[in-house]
Design a protein around this nucleic acid. Structure first.
Lengths: 155, 155
DNA sequence: AGGCGATGAATGCATTTTCATGCTAATCGG
DNA sequence: CCGATTAGCATGAAAATGCATTCATCGCCT
C-alpha cells in the first residue's frame, strides 16, 4: 500500500469535487473490465470502437471519435490499426463522397459480440455490488462507490 | 454536425452501458472546465496534480499517480515537466529514503489557488444546471445529464 | 547481523496521442 | 454556374503514455 500523505484524510479538495468523483468512479469501475480486455489483448480504444459499431451498418470517423471520446485524428489512426488487424473495414459513403463509413468485419463482429457479453455480465456484477446505484443522490452515491471500489478487492 | 449513423437512435449498446454512461458524463462535464484550462495553458494532468497538492505538505509519487488516475512512470515524467516549469518541487522523505515528497512551489500554489476557485465556480454552475444530480437514480440521471450536456451549449 | 522479498521511484523504447495543417468534396450566396 | 465557405478525413512532426525493467531502500525473519 502506498504511504498515505501528511494530509488529513477527507480534507482534500478533490475528494469533494464533482468532476473528480465522476472521473474517479468511472476510472475505478472501468479498470475492472479493462483487466478483462487486457487478458484478451484488446486495448480500451479498440474495445470502444467495437462496442460502438455493434448493430451498426456504418459509422463515420468523426461520429466514432465523438462516441469513443477521442479526437478525430486519433480515431483515424486507431482505425488504421483496426483495419490492419482485421476488425473493421472502411467504405465510401454513397451520398457524400467525403464521408467514410466504418463497419465491423466478421472477425470484428465475433470479437465484439464476445466482449459485449462480458461487458454486460460485468455491468450486472457492478450493479449488484452497488445497489444504491439506482436510488441515491449522485455525489453521495459516487463517493460510496469510490470507497467500496477502492478497498475491497475481494467480495 | 456529424451525420448521424444509419443506426436507430437509442438502440446502441453503449447508450445503456453503465461504464460508458459514467465515462461519457465525466468526459462531457469535464470538457467544459478543460476549456478553461486550455485558455490558461494548463494541461489536464498538470491541473490534476496541482489540485491534488493543494493543502498538502508533500505527497508521494505513487500516491499522486493513484489520485490523478495515472500510472507511476507517467507521473514521474509529468513531475519532471512540472519541476522544470516551476510548479512543484521534489524533496526526500525524512523517514524513508526511497520516498520522494512532492509539494507545490509558490508559483504552483498561486496557480492552483486560482484554478481551484475556477473549478469551484464551474462545479456550482454544473450543479445548478443539473438539479436532479442530488436526488435521481444514477443511470437515468447520467443519461439526462448526457443529453443536456450534449446539445444545449447555451442555457 | 545477513539474506530476501517487497516497496518506491526512475528509465528506455515502442506505441499512441496531440495539434496544426492540408486536401477533397459538398454547400451556400449571388 | 462560379467563388467562397464549411464539413469530413488524413497526415506529419512533436509530445505524452504504457510497459517492462532496473536501481535503491526498507522490513522481516532467522
Amino acid at each position: 500500500m502506498s504511504q498515505p500523505p501528511a494530509n488529513p484524510p477527507g480534507s482534500r479538495f478533490v475528494d469533494d469535487y464533482l468532476l473528480y468523483l465522476l472521473a474517479r468512479a468511472s476510472h475505478l469501475i472501468s479498470a475492472e473490465f479493462h483487466d478483462q480486455l487486457r487478458r484478451r489483448g484488446i486495448s480500451v480504444p479498440v474495445w470502444r470502437v467495437l462496442a460502438s459499431l455493434v448493430g451498426s451498418s456504418g459509422e463515420t470517423v468523426t461520429g466514432l471519435a465523438e462516441t469513443c471520446l477521442l479526437q478525430q485524428p486519433t480515431m483515424t489512426k486507431l482505425l488504421d490499426r483496426m483495419v490492419r488487424d482485421g476488425f473493421v473495414k472502411r467504405t465510401q459513403d454513397a451520398k457524400d463522397r467525403r464521408v467514410v463509413r466504418v463497419a465491423l468485419t466478421t472477425r470484428g463482429e465475433v470479437t465484439a459480440a464476445d466482449l459485449v457479453q462480458a461487458a454486460k455480465q460485468h455491468e450486472a456484477e457492478v450493479m449488484a455490488r452497488h445497489p444504491e446505484a439506482e436510488a441515491l443522490a449522485i455525489k453521495t452515491l459516487l463517493r460510496a462507490i469510490i470507497a467500496r471500489q477502492t478497498r475491497p478487492r475481494r467480495g
